[in-house]
Design a protein around this nucleic acid. Structure first.
Lengths: 204, 204
DNA sequence: GCAAAAGTGTTATTGGTACACCCATGC
DNA sequence: GCATGGGTGTACCAATAACACTTTTGC
């Protein structure tokens, strides 16, 4: 019996997270063509000949945020045959993480807890990505959102935003320091109208 | 500029684990055709028209182990354009878990720590699957390898085999019971030439 | 001196780890 | 009675959780 299969277009879709203004935000573009013209969609694109999914994503990220290296990771592959109304397209979902200071135009970044009405199945992809990010959180992930040096309270804020919980400030600081994730530097915050924070950095 | 993409064949490959004779084993088939004729390979197959990857895998598992429902989960999608020498084939890697009592012929199941020289990139897929299984271990996963009712020492053995560690028997038992994962039954092992074990089962 | 955010210690509880012997059964 | 694997308790240490006030700065 002959297999009844067809070839498929292969795409990557990236849920690119950043932390800005106390919110976890993601990059969305507005579609200029049908289907779903005018609706927002995730950045992504088709795999070219001789590219792995990771290479496609690296190429796309260069187009979007410049030649910077950014952290990314597969989290799920979406295979519903009807997910693209034009032609069957399998999409490999990635999360990517970027520090907001490396973003020029923040106007296309949206609070990921207030997303609706996206093109294709992109709302589903965003929901799975949020869930994945939260479940996988660790210091390597949070590090992507932090500057080289940062006050401990900013680090706490990052954890709280991603996990949507609140931590006790004293316990949080003690844990970060005694577990050896961070170490303090000699630098202090400047020109703030309150007690200046000490800067910390991640240990290697 | 026109995109330089091509469509791709889409496949699933399943690393189906079971525990048997104190070892974590996986199912491998011998290839009857080139490429890689005579080498062992993972069970899997191409996505048919109108099938999701999960539906393809459900269909394949029926062919392999009968009409039983078994637990499975995506863990990584392999996109190297050269991974199949015939034609580009993207493969969605799944782990699947089955109790060895549901397997008729155990002769095609091999110790997953003693695997070499598989077809395609299947060794890589197996290695990633093992790593994933170990990192994701929890009671739902271990449950798939256990009978409805089981002695606690068998449960401990399952954890030890998957994680490749040893646990203290007293601490392990206390933890399983006090954390509410299992509850004891009234049943005892029969016809063993040592003290009979009490059977436990998973709480819901 | 007031507003704003940074920074700091102690206590109680919980969870984890280490450790060695007796028990029930079949033969 | 011996071989086999099943089953049990305690003490210590580490990690976590709860909790409120003082410090430093700019204006």
């Amino acid at each position: 019996m002959k297999d009844n299969y067809e070839k498929s277009r292969m795409a990557v879709d990236a849920v690119i997270f950043t932390i800005h203004e106390g919110k976890l935000k993601i990059l969305l573009h507005e579609r200029e063509k049908d289907p779903f013209k005018g609706k927002k969609e995730l950045p992504g694109g088709l795999l070219q000949i001789n590219e792995t999914a990771e290479q496609t994503l690296t190429r796309k990220i260069k187009e979007i945020v410049g030649a910077q290296e950014i952290f990314f990771q597969q989290f799920y592959t979406f295979t519903d045959p009807k997910r693209d109304p034009r032609d069957r397209t399998v999409s490999i979902g990635f999360i990517a993480l970027i520090n907001s200071s490396r973003i020029n135009d923040l106007s296309k970044w949206f609070d990921c807890n207030n997303i609706k009405d996206l093109a294709f199945d992109h709302k589903l992809i965003v929901d799975k990505a949020k869930e994945y990010l939260k479940s996988e959180i660790n210091s390597i992930i949070v590090k992507q959102f932090m500057s080289e040096q940062f006050p401990l309270n900013k680090l706490q804020e990052a954890y709280e935003i991603i996990e949507n919980v609140e931590y006790d400030n004293r316990n949080f600081r003690r844990q970060m320091i005694t577990s050896g994730i961070v170490k303090e530097t000699k630098k202090l915050e400047k020109s703030v109208s309150h007690r200046p924070a000490k800067f910390y950095k991640f240990k290697k």
